[in-house]
Write a protein that binds this DNA or RNA. Structure first.
Lengths: 199, 199, 199, 199
DNA sequence: TATGAATGAGAGTTCATTCAT
DNA sequence: AATGAATGAACTCTCATTCAT
């Protein structure tokens, strides 16, 4: 008969799992998927090698899960800020503000995100597109589309323009340094895009 | 000592070298640096494994040389088109036109470029920045700076704005599919940026 | 101290033990000793991994115990049928009849038996020889020796001939399919051996 | 330009290949397929681990190739002796004589053969059946069938009887000790079978 | 007694690099 | 200059076993 309660076990498992995912993010960010190794990931998490495989069936799956969880957190943070505003222009600004703040705060996750997005591993790229679809839609519908409806943005194609905006965001986000600093502030970027969109 | 034979030898060496670099680009593009392997590279080039090491001391060095040669070709193509124009706005358009055309024509090189730029391998990223410095300056000085001088662009900071423009170009270039198609034409992109820069 | 509870406890232990042995037989039969794993064995038995080690000190010991228990059941079944007859020839027939019926009914045990007998694991092979010694003696003394004494079998060496008979039985038994079917009935085999032994 | 001649290379490759197959047989015989490891196989052959993979794509394939090559040698040896005789009875004797001599001379191969035939690895068992089909046919057609035609054997079913004879051979062959000794000579076995088949 | 999380030795496989020819 | 056989470190994944509860 098990002495641990079901809850206790669940609690422990969940914590271990999170530590492993965090460690995986760190190692993937540091060395890239291919060069990152399970031994280091587990050691970074404070476990032995085998433990990883009690939680994830493979290195590949570890990455796929990581992608999903990262995208979710990322979206939450951005959505939370963007939806505070009603005006499209303000939303655009909030998008860059929250986005830049995310990559500064979640350095490792940000790097993994970028590596997957622009890297050679097609499966991961695909997973990224799927996982980031909601954020893409947020930009497309609730910022650009909204701005057009509100009569402040030019009558541009919202979807491809959202692609451009996401590109700008991600391109800049990819150049964060190890202190979480970016080479440009969100203000000028937001400005640049704003100018591009305004009537 | 026969001089002609000397030249011939040089000629053959140079061709072999180019074939190896081309093959390396193909394999790096297909599998990424880490997963690409020397055996496949040499076989793609039509040589045996050992031959690679008669031309390049290591896989790493092969990539570094490739980066330099790619950047040079890339710059030449873009410069050739951009400098045909005198008006900054036209130059901007030419930049995107020639740039998009480059990634379509040089699919593999383009992918390697992107992988290095956004990938986890710091040394290669560094090498990319160095190799692409001239192109960056072209954009910064001979397009944006020029546009300001010509009084058509807003009085923005040319360097960071050049960063944004390069970001946009590279971000879009990274999404070329295997047929060399991009999800957006150069026209709308040029337009977008134009709007962002104009007074 | 409650005596009944003691017995109950013993009862439960014994049942758990049997379930584990049965599950071990299934897994050993399916994957062979080396590839069978404790986790699957315990799960097949309906327990957690650790439970196995409350009953058997190691995987190896689990097999050794299994061998002994299998051999005992096997012998009992065969002896029960063989000793119903008094004539050596009839006993020979019964031996094959009961033997073939055993391997059909106890598919997994039969496979484990064969795997150990012909497999590379010397310790298990040894254990098999020891465990099957009584059956060997049954054939040697109470069938072949008896037949010679009864004057129906040729004056052959009983021990090595018993070896041949056992070989034939086990060789055929090894080719049972997953439905418990053998490629030959006991009749023709008994016949074949009968012919070989008769004057 | 390669300095080794094509022939020289082929020669070296062939020798290395044979050494690896021999070593594999030794290790598979000693520890069984699952427990035998590539490192030991290569070391036994006098090479480093990686060399195995220059010749065989996987451990599994190594075994499959080994099975085929073993079966071929085995068949050649037996056929050579059997076909020296014209009388079925003498052929039967030769079959056992040559067969017993094979397992004594090719100890390790014999063990691998037996392990695969009676072991848990279905793919290898299948491969054995396929590879030994010609030998089975030799027994069925050119010994038993022939004996019936020659009027010395009873009118039995040749195929299933060949199965019995092969069983007897393999069963005994499986009990060779490490000095190549069997517990019974070919004479008594041949006699036993002869008796069983004769009118 | 039963549990399952954690361990780490050990296995198969890959591949950059070396080198004799 | 070109070859490809050989190497062995490094990697992913497996699993018998331990142990705190």
């Amino acid at each position: 008969m098990p002495r641990y309660s079901e809850e206790e076990r669940e609690q422990v498992r969940s914590e271990t799992r999170q530590r492993l995912l965090k460690a995986a993010a760190v190692e993937f960010a540091r060395h890239g998927y291919s060069k990152a190794n399970i031994d280091d990931i587990s050691k970074t998490a404070g476990f032995a090698k085998g433990t990883v495989y009690n939680y994830f069936p493979s290195k590949r799956e570890l990455m796929l899960v990581l992608i999903e969880e990262m995208a979710q957190v990322h979206l939450e943070i951005i959505a939370e800020h963007v939806y505070q505003e009603q005006a499209a222009e303000r939303r655009l600004e909030k998008f860059f503000e929250a986005g830049f703040s995310y990559v500064s705060a979640y350095l490792t996750q940000g790097m993994v995100m970028i590596n997957n997005l622009y890297g050679p591993h097609i499966e991961f790229k695909q997973a990224m597109y799927t996982a980031y679809q909601p954020m893409f839609e947020l930009v497309s519908r609730d910022i650009i589309g909204l701005g057009i409806k509100q009569g402040i943005f030019r009558k541009i194609e919202p979807v491809s323009t959202a692609g451009l905006v996401m590109n700008i965001y991600l391109g800049i986000a990819s150049q964060v340094n190890e202190d979480g600093k970016l080479w440009i502030e969100y203000g000028p970027v937001s400005d640049f895009v704003s100018h591009a969109l305004h009537k």
